[in-house]
Each structure stands twice: as C-alpha cells, then as structure tokens.
Design a protein around this nucleic acid. Sequence first.
DNA 1: ATAATTGCAAAAGCTTTGCACGGAA
DNA 2: TTCCGTGCAAAGCTTTTGCAATTAT
Lengths: 137, 137
Amino acid sequence: MKDQTTIKLKEIGLKVTPQRQAILKLLEGNQTHPSAERIYSEILRQFPGISFATVYNTLSKLVEAGEIQELDIDPNKKRFDPCIKSHYHFYCKVCGKVFDIVFDNPFPLEIKRIDGHRVDAIQLNLKGVCKECKRKR
Amino acid sequence: MKDQTTIKLKEIGLKVTPQRQAILKLLEGNQTHPSAERIYSEILRQFPGISFATVYNTLSKLVEAGEIQELDIDPNKKRFDPCIKSHYHFYCKVCGKVFDIVFDNPFPLEIKRIDGHRVDAIQLNLKGVCKECKRKR
DNA sequence: ATAATTGCAAAAGCTTTGCACGGAA
DNA sequence: TTCCGTGCAAAGCTTTTGCAATTAT
C-alpha cells in the first residue's frame, strides 16, 4: 500500500504526512521550475488549509536531502527543480519562465574541486528572451 | 580635468554627480562582488549622507547600460561585478564570498541563440565550500 | 529653465521564524 | 508518549517606489 511518495519520505527520514505527499506529487516530473509561492498556490487548490510555512519547510528539507534542487536563476525568487540530474536552464526576462536546456557538447557539471575550493553544485544559467516572447513583439 | 568616472557617466548618458563617481570608483577593479547593501555602507564611510536609494538607482542604471553585471549566485541577495568580460564564479555557502574562476577549457559564453530563444547573458555558477572555510573545520 | 537626481521614508516581495496545537511513529 | 509537523501570524531582509527638495546641464 506504499506509494512512491511514502517510500521517498521514509528514505529521507521524514514523517509521512498528506501535505508532504501532495508536494512531492506536484513536483514529480514537473518541468515548470515553480517558485515556493507557486507550489503553495497549486497545492492549495487540492489541499485547502495548507499553510505556506509547511510548503516552505518541506521544500527546505527536500533540498537539504538532495531530493530536489534550488535554482538561483530568477532574480526575483527561488525556483525549484525536482530533476537533480545535470542540465542547464534558460530564464526568460519577459515572461519569467524557466526552460531546461540541453547542449550537444555539454559542459562538465561533475567538477569536484577548483582552485582548492570544494564544489558541491554547478548551475549554468542562460538569460534572455524566449521564443514565445520574441514572437509577440 | 575629466577623470575616468566623468567620462564613463557621460558615455552612458547619465548626469555626473559626486555620488555616482564614488560608486564607480568603488566598483572599479573591485573583485569582491559586493551586494547593494555592501556598496552602500562602503560609500557611506567616505560620503556620509548618501542614501541607499541613490546607490540602488545608480546600480540599476549601470546594469542597464551594461557597465556592470548583476550576479544571481548568492541565494540571499544580488551581487554586482564591474567586470563584464566572460568569466565564471564560485560562491561559498559558508562565508558567502564570491570568487572569480578561470577554466583551462572555457565554456563558450558567447552563445546568442539556443532552442529558438535569444540569449543575452550566461552565468556559470559553482557553489560549495571555499578553500579557507574548508581549512577552518 | 528644465529635467534628472538625491534623500527620506514607506511599501512591497519573498523568505524565515516562534509557538501552540495536532498528528505520526 | 514523544517528537515532529502543521497552521497562523509576525518578523526579517532585500528590493523597489513616491515625492519634495536639490542639483547638473
């Protein structure tokens, strides 16, 4: 009777609550790179009464556990990505959407050391105007 | 009688004020990647009475003019870099310092288009624990 | 003269925290 | 039972804005 969310939460060592399951389900396979606020308002529809603090706390724990990744690409707010595999992002200054980007000759994102510093994560961020927004002008 | 800051400001089309000159001088060759708050408090020492809004406004104009660059690497605040040439950054999660990084095989930061999107800027951000902070543990 | 800039203060956003109650283990 | 998690509300920070007085051109 254990679904994927239950398994994941137990693996991480978190208590299994309906709120957390809803958050995990929303994020699973989600490629919109939602902000905390966005996640909150989406969850709210199917889960009236959930508080922002719960969403915030859960996201923090998931990031800490390495289950999801926090992106610093949107100048205005933090964005979250359930995909922790190496890939790049494009941020549209006009609409604020974040797109996944794949290069033919990928930059190596597995660097572990540089100049004596310990590298834990690498983010390659492209910024500009997306296809859609370009068209509308 | 025209110094470098005067020339730069006129080039950009901004009025030349002592406040702006002080900000430009502080940034010139500055490799600490300061935040707006940091710039404000540094300027304050040599320029009592300057307001944060002035610093903020000037930084905005300089970014808009392409004279300096805004970095989205510090999760907590915006950082500014007077060097607009292609280079990478390392952010230390412990002390918050931002270091310039140079690779042997640099990733091309001159891409202008990808997936139909127009690319205006690329930032390659590395995060982890810096040499110094590693040593202290 | 006139249009831009400054300083002050307040507002706006997003993020984070404290705490009492309730629920998972 | 014992802690952890939730919800509510407030606090904290950084960023942004409005406006009257001042200054550069």
